[in-house]
Amino acid sequence: MSDSSTNGDGFGDRAKAAAGWPVMVSFQALNYPLSAIQRIVGIQGMPWIFLLPNLAFFGIFVVIPLFINFAFSLTGGTELFLGNRVYTGTEQYGFLLECETFGDPITCREDRFWKGLYNTAIFIIFQVTFLVLFSLITALILNQKIRARGFFRAVFFFPVLLSPVVVALIWKWILLRDGILNAFLVSVGMDKILFFVSPEWSMFWAVFVSIWAHMGFYTLILLAGLQAIQPDLYEAAEMDGTSKERVFWRITMPLLWPNLLVVLVLALIKGVQIFDEVFVLTGGGPGTATQFIVQYIYNTGFTEQVQNFGLASAASVVLGVVLFVLTITQLAVTRARDNG
């Protein structure tokens, strides 16, 4: 933060000059009602007044929906309003989870759900592995004394800020039948590949594009972790004439390990919720080859002719349980890093 405060003051001053007076006037106007409230509730009541708007938003848009979600998953029919829905107990879950043989989506009653789960599993195995691997390599490289380090750091980071739609369109344009990648393939004597017709290629590009888009974020966290390692350790190792390889395995890796775990779990949490860029890139296709669990929820609840809110909610609850377990792991891992 100390690094940015010098920049920040200049920016802050200009922002204050431009946006200052309407903000000042409205804050001043709010002072009258809030002073009146303070006279009624006293200073000890004021924290609740300050918390009120935020808690109201959390309540209306997070907590109440969380409970409604359960209620939805226990009802059937196509009505949106809970009062009009029929109580069906655990029927939705039964429908969702019933399979002749587990692990084989085709034998399940709701095969699209299982295909979504299966695709998501395949996706995160590859995506998280290579995402963490490349973030680590990039962070290690950017942590060296190289020329134009700031430039290279920016190059690897900027896709993080692009919207998923933009990311998907950039790559779709490259991968089209007459796109530049196929032009390259033809120029080296190969045949054109229809990437979005092949299930394997579609999955490959879904993984590739999402790594391309998110790598910078994880690189940045790992880079911060690397820079927190005491330089004395490296100096001491150099004086002892320790080889680079040994320094990496004996100093860098053990000290970076907690950060690596945090990155791994964060990547898992994001990976399970993959939707945006792949939805625009492949539309879930060909067929259901790149349809993931969030898209299953979206399709079931919002795009089908018959909007099946109950089934979508039941699937959300399943997704929520997975995320809950992952988040608990994340909290434990983060705490271990910050305390250790």
Partner: peptide
């Protein structure tokens, strides 16, 4: 309250799409 805030941190919108849609419709 802090614990509550941390808990809401764990609930991404993808998990509560349908009920938030209901609230917004209401």
């Amino acid at each position: 309250i802090m614990l509550f805030v941390i808990c809401t941190l764990m609930i991404p919108i993808t998990v509560i799409l349908v009920p938030v849609y209901l609230v917004v419709t209401q």
